[in-house]
Write a protein that binds this DNA or RNA. Structure first.
Lengths: 194, 194
DNA sequence: ATGCAAGTTCGCATTGAGTGCAATATAGCA
DNA sequence: TGCTATATTGCACTCAATGCGAACTTGCAT
């Protein structure tokens, strides 16, 4: 029960923060503002998040976790790049909510406009690369460490660029079309011939 | 002359900051400390750098600039991935000073231990990816945007991982061996067959 | 029910980053 | 020598973030 309450509060903070960032702007929103809107003390905020920016990335990269799991379950003789593309497809269909999420769009906009948020996003992305690279290395011991990092870097980099394009482009078509465009773009980036 | 003085002051700040970071630690060093050690007012510091962290990355990524230049000078019919590998070779031999630099080692250590510095490093890396991706796209218009980003991401990611290994791993072999290992690993990551 | 243990909330005080403003100093130049 | 542009700096201020300690809540065992 304690935990449920804590999750509720956490979600309330995120909602309040996103709302305020969207309406007032990031720099113009203070932690005290967010705390007040979420009905908690300013001090309490820092018990949930390390800072304003953490709030935007707090959900944890579920896409990265998904990719790591799929890599871990892959057949040993499968092409690593193909496994990554499968993970991408799962992420596109599975967490559609997340990809179309208004929160994700806001995050992307702030990443583009606020240096501090951009740095945080870059950090999250590199951590994703590291996690995926490690997973690849574990599952495919034949890979060199640098091969694994390179593959992971290409995959995450291409995906991020594609997602950004699709999410910020108003004329983006249906979710399925968007997923297909992302897939083919990343496949091309990884040099996979289909 | 004004400009010379400014450069001197800038260098003095960097030296003071690096010195203090190394001896006292990053978090324990305040901007006021650095300013005092560099014989300037605290307020003046911010006229030179946006913050403590900027000081560590201020030199600008000369390796990125090198890569961009080499891409810009490449023959239009050359394989993009091969051009990147050439840039990597140049960086490996050319800027050895920079790779052995004590400042670079400190930066790498702080990237590993201080979250704020890590975020900044991640940002720098992603900016490198973007710059190289754009350069690729400009020089090789046949490339898809996602291909260019993916290639750049794989290249920078693999290179960064390799450089980190080389700089922090004492038992890494001769410089030539290290360069060769980096080269082949990145080549494999980019899917280049040699 | 009572009381203990653990965890949560939150106010208060403090440090330090970063900014705006205005005064002063200094270099470059007519 | 003045005049102008730029650099430096102090001062005051806002806000992020942390430590501390007090009040409160929850879960559980007696």
């Amino acid at each position: 029960m304690r935990e449920r309450k804590r999750n509720e509060t956490r979600e309330r903070i995120v909602r309040a923060g996103v709302e305020l960032f969207a309406s007032k702007g990031y720099d113009e929103t203070t932690v005290a503002d967010i705390a007040a809107a979420a009905d908690i003390g300013t001090r309490t905020f820092f018990g949930y998040f390390a800072g304003k920016d953490a709030l935007l990335f707090g959900a944890g990269s579920s896409r990265t976790e998904l990719a790591v799991r799929i890599i871990g379950e892959a057949a040993p003789d499968e092409q690593p790049a193909r496994v990554l593309l499968r993970a991408l497809d799962e992420a596109s269909t599975d967490s559609d909510e997340d990809l179309v999420n208004e929160r994700a769009v806001l995050r992307l906009r702030l990443v583009g406009s606020v240096p501090a948020v951009r740095a945080r996003g870059a950090l999250a992305q590199l951590e994703g690369v590291k996690a995926i690279g490690d997973a690849l290395l574990t599952r495919f011991p034949a890979l060199d460490a640098a091969q694994a990092s390179g593959l992971a870097g290409a995959f995450v980099g291409a995906s991020a660029a594609a997602v950004q394009t699709v999410l910020l482009d108003a004329t983006a078509g249906t979710p399925a079309e968007r997923a297909a465009r992302i897939h083919s773009a990343v496949a091309a980036g990884l040099g996979v011939v289909e």
